Simulated scan of single mutants.
Amino acid sequence: MSTGSAERSWCVVVPHHATGARLARHRLADELADVVPPALLADLVAVLAELVGNAVRHADPLPGGVVRVAWRLRPLAGGQSVQLRVTDGGSASGPSMRPSAPDSIDGRGLHIVAGLADRWGVERDGLGQSVWAEFDPVGSPRPDLVVAG
């Protein structure tokens, strides 16, 4: 695992289709496998899968039928923070956590994101919306959940 101190970022586009989530997960895992601890990488992959899956299921694509996926590593005391960001064409109703029964087959995605990430939120602009999730360095105290809207 690398302990480099430079900020690093990536941005890729994936199809606005179920295969887009798989492609995004594999690309993230390939890029960060030697950079972040395995437990954090597992959380990052799970959250990215939820965010891309939600974009495909609930939002319109960006022009070209794609979803933009980005991640950024920033050096901080105690390790590197990671931000994931998924940008899509938006939807009539923005992302929101909803109640789900134990036997429901869906409705848990943002609960998973909130449980694994230190912070998450939504930003909208003229092109669509971005849902982001941030992870503090391993071992950092977790602040309260912040959801921007």
Results as ranks from 00 to 15, higher is better:
residue 18 A to R: 15
residue 1 M to S: 15
residue 130 S to P: 09
residue 138 V to Q: 07
residue 135 F to N: 07
residue 11 C to A: 15
residue 73 L to C: 09
residue 103 D to M: 06
residue 28 L to Q: 04
residue 65 G to V: 02
residue 54 N to V: 09
residue 6 A to H: 07
residue 18 A to P: 14
residue 125 D to L: 06
residue 149 G to D: 13
residue 79 G to F: 01
residue 142 R to P: 14
residue 116 L to K: 14
residue 60 D to A: 14
residue 2 S to T: 05
residue 103 D to F: 05
residue 146 V to K: 06
residue 62 L to M: 01
residue 134 E to M: 02
residue 122 V to C: 10
residue 97 M to N: 00
residue 148 A to D: 12
residue 127 L to I: 10
residue 10 W to F: 12
residue 124 R to M: 00
residue 142 R to Y: 12
residue 120 W to P: 13
residue 44 L to P: 10
residue 122 V to M: 13
residue 34 D to M: 08
residue 139 G to W: 05
residue 26 H to S: 13
residue 66 V to C: 04
residue 115 G to M: 09
residue 34 D to T: 15
residue 89 G to H: 08
residue 83 Q to V: 11
residue 17 H to L: 13
residue 29 A to N: 07
residue 95 P to S: 08
residue 103 D to E: 04
residue 65 G to H: 00
residue 24 A to V: 03
residue 135 F to E: 07
residue 3 T to S: 06
residue 86 V to W: 00
residue 21 A to T: 14
residue 94 G to D: 13
residue 137 P to G: 00
residue 13 V to Q: 14
residue 23 L to M: 12
residue 124 R to L: 01
residue 148 A to Y: 02
residue 53 G to F: 03
residue 126 G to C: 03
residue 8 R to A: 13
residue 73 L to S: 08
residue 21 A to I: 10
residue 110 L to D: 10
residue 67 V to S: 03
residue 10 W to T: 11
residue 36 V to C: 09
residue 112 I to Q: 05
residue 91 S to R: 09
residue 74 R to A: 08
residue 61 P to Y: 03
residue 20 G to I: 14
residue 48 L to A: 05
residue 145 L to V: 08
residue 68 R to L: 10
residue 124 R to T: 04
residue 16 H to I: 02
residue 136 D to T: 01
residue 113 V to K: 09
residue 5 S to N: 05
residue 134 E to I: 01
residue 111 H to V: 15
residue 46 A to N: 09
residue 38 P to A: 15
residue 61 P to Q: 02
residue 78 G to F: 00
residue 112 I to F: 06
residue 72 R to S: 04
residue 115 G to R: 12
residue 123 E to R: 11
residue 88 D to I: 05
residue 84 L to Q: 00
residue 126 G to K: 06
residue 123 E to D: 12
residue 53 G to D: 03
residue 52 V to P: 04
residue 142 R to Q: 08
residue 74 R to T: 14
residue 86 V to N: 02
residue 60 D to N: 04
residue 98 R to L: 12
residue 29 A to G: 12
residue 65 G to P: 04
residue 12 V to K: 03
residue 30 D to N: 02
residue 87 T to V: 07
residue 123 E to M: 07
residue 107 G to N: 11
residue 36 V to N: 03
residue 112 I to L: 15
residue 37 P to S: 05
residue 90 G to S: 04
residue 33 A to I: 11
residue 2 S to F: 01
residue 99 P to Q: 05
residue 108 R to E: 09
residue 40 L to G: 10
residue 6 A to K: 11
residue 15 P to L: 01
residue 81 S to Q: 10
residue 65 G to F: 00
residue 45 V to R: 11
residue 3 T to H: 10
residue 65 G to I: 01
residue 125 D to M: 05
residue 28 L to R: 04
residue 58 H to Q: 01
residue 24 A to E: 09
residue 17 H to W: 11
residue 145 L to T: 13
residue 120 W to A: 11
residue 44 L to A: 04
residue 4 G to W: 03
residue 72 R to G: 00
residue 123 E to K: 06
residue 148 A to T: 15
residue 141 P to R: 11
residue 48 L to F: 08
residue 105 I to D: 04
residue 27 R to H: 15
residue 69 V to L: 02
